[in-house]
Amino acid sequence: MSAPTLKIDDLKLSFKTWSGTAQVLHGISLHIKKGERVALVGESGSGKSVTARIVLGMLQQLKSARIAGSVEFEGVNLETLKPASRHALRGTRMSMIFQDPTSSLNPVYPIFAQFKEVLERAQPGITNEKAREKAISALADVAINEPDRVLDSYAFQLSGGMNQRVMIAMALANNPALLLADEPGTALDVTVQAQTLKLMSELVKKHHTSVLFISHNLGVVREFADRVYVIYKGNIVEQGPTERLFDDPKHPYTRALLSAVPRITGGGIPDLDDDPGRFTAPLVAHEGYSERELLA
C-alpha cells in the first residue's frame, strides 16, 4: 500500500509571547490518503490554520514558534528536505487556499501577474498568451463572469468572493497532490459555493488529489468530506467517517457544536452549551477510525 499523501504525527506547536510560552497544538495526529477529502473542524483559535501553515512550511521561519512532531508528505518527512526542495513543492505538489483571501493576494500586482507566477512554477517559461488562456479558463471554472476584467484588476478592486475564487483557481491550477483549503467558501454565495465544491470534487476524482478541508460551515463539511477530525484547543477530540460523526456525535464538544448550528427552518439562536470542563474529555475515535486502525 502506498504511503498516505499527508501524515501528521504528534504535532506540537508553541509560541513564545510576552508572558511566557503559549502551547497551541498539544500533539495532534491526522492523515489523508490519496484521493481522500478530510475535514478539520472546530473552535475558532483551536489551531486549524497553523496546522495547515506548518504543512506548507510557512510557520517554521517564525522565530517565536517552536514546532515538534513529524509531517510526512507522500512518505517523506518534510524536515529532511533541503529548503529549496521544500520550497519547490509549494504551489505545485501542494497548494493552499488561504483563509483571508483579500489580504493573501499581493496588493501591488494585478491578478494576472500573480496567476502567471503560479503557472510558471509548474511550467517555467510559459508565454503570456498561454498563461492568460489558462487563467481565463480556470476563472470560468469558478463562476467568474468577466475573467478579463478580473485578471486586469488589483485585489482591492474585486469583491471578497471574487478574490476567494481567484485564490481557489490559483491553488487548483497546477493539479496539486495535496490541497489545503482553509475556509474556502466564506465569501461565496451558496450557489457559487456549490459550484466550487463540485469543481474540487472533480479534481479529487480526476487527479486523486487529497484535500484538507478546514471549515466552520458544518453543512458544507457534511456534503463534501469523507472523514472528519474535530479539534478543540489544540487537541483532536473526535474523528470518524462523516455520516457517522454527524448522526452520532460522541464527544461533548462535537455534540455542543452540532447543537449550535443555526437552522434554516428558524427557531432562534440556540442556547449555548459551552461548559469547557466537559470539552477537554479525551479523544473519541469512531470504531475502525482511529489513526492506528486506519494506518495499519
Binding site: V41, G42, E43, S44, Q99, G160, E183, T186, A187, H216, L218, A256, L257, A260, V261, P262, I269, P270, L272, D274
Partner: peptide, 20 residues
C-alpha cells in the same frame, strides 16, 4: 459585512446573542 464567517458555531451563537 460577513461578521461571523470565521467563527465556529458556538462562538457565533455567543456573538449573535451579544448583538441581539
Amino acid at each position: 459585512d460577513e461578521p461571523t464567517s470565521a467563527l465556529d458555531v458556538l462562538v457565533q451563537a455567543r456573538v449573535l446573542k451579544l448583538l441581539k
